[in-house]
């Protein structure tokens, strides 16, 4: 099939950006969205033009490097699917596809479709860990974790840090990302010791980075490639309230 792409091109953060139209010819159903872009880039290169810059790495939906807002929806709107796992069989011949980068003040644009998501790293650095130094651990079975707790922690821990939750949120809020990490660690018995400090530090850093606030629209969970639930945000709100009331 043949497609028309409207792609956001921007040389760097300072330069003004614009949409550029290009053609994707002979696209196959079995191609992934990024493979389709690879083919377009090969074509651009062959014509001596600069290829479209976009992020990707593992291409199996787990590293969280790929982004792209496709026709107005981060990762293209297939349930539980990252852009790299989105396949062209979901598009129609002759369609025009608009491709934009993640848009958020906290994710400054780097080039074309690439943004800087280091804000997420700084939030993790603020407290998204359990302070277990290497070598000091007791036997792994010394602390039992009830299966439902372990399962819930895993549900939250599945986050790949892609930032689609921020990209889709009308307020560019990072609550789902932060809540997922807070919940993963706060749910587990191993993480209880630092529970209050963790939620406080991570929320403070999130606020500092310039993300918006949660208005509970639930669009984040709708686009999350790992289908992380909005309920974790409620849990983080609860943990933060407890930490606040304790005044620690």
């Amino acid at each position: 099939m043949n497609l028309t792409l409207k792609v956001w091109r921007q040389k760097d953060a300072a330069a003004p950006g614009h949409f550029e139209t290009c053609q994707a010819r002979d696209v196959l159903q079995d191609m992934s969205f990024l493979e389709m872009l690879d083919v377009v880039n090969e074509d651009l290169l062959a014509r001596g033009k600069e290829p479209i810059a976009f992020d990707s790495d593992c291409r199996e939906g787990i590293c969280g490097m790929c982004s792209l807002v496709i026709n107005g929806i981060p990762h293209g709107g297939q349930r539980g699917t990252a852009t790299c796992q989105l396949h062209m069989r979901h598009f129609k011949d002759g369609e025009t596809i608009t491709i934009e980068p993640w848009r958020a003040k906290a994710f400054p644009l780097v080039k074309d479709l690439i943004v800087n998501r280091s804000a997420f790293d700084r939030i993790i650095q603020a407290g998204g860990f359990i302070s277990a130094y290497t070598g000091g651990a007791p036997d792994a079975n010394a602390i039992t974790v009830p299966k439902p707790t372990a399962d819930a922690a895993m549900d939250a821990a599945a986050c790949i840090g892609c930032g689609a939750c921020v990209a889709v949120c009308k307020n560019a809020s990072a609550m789902l990302f932060v809540a997922a990490k807070v919940s993963h660690l706060n749910l587990l018995p191993q993480g209880k010791a630092e529970k209050d400090k963790r939620v406080w530090s991570m929320v403070s850093q999130m606020d500092k980075e310039g993300f918006g606030n949660c208005t509970v629209t639930a669009s984040c969970e709708a686009v999350c490639p790992k289908e992380i639930s909005l309920n974790f945000i409620a849990k983080m709100n609860r943990d933060y309230a407890i930490a606040t009331l304790k005044g620690e």
């Binding site: 651990a137 792994a140 372990a150 895993m154 587990l188 191993q190 993480g191």
Partner: peptide
């Protein structure tokens, strides 16, 4: 396990 890796239980 001490770091909070949610291993299957």
């Amino acid at each position: 396990a001490a770091q909070g890796v949610p291993f299957a239980r």
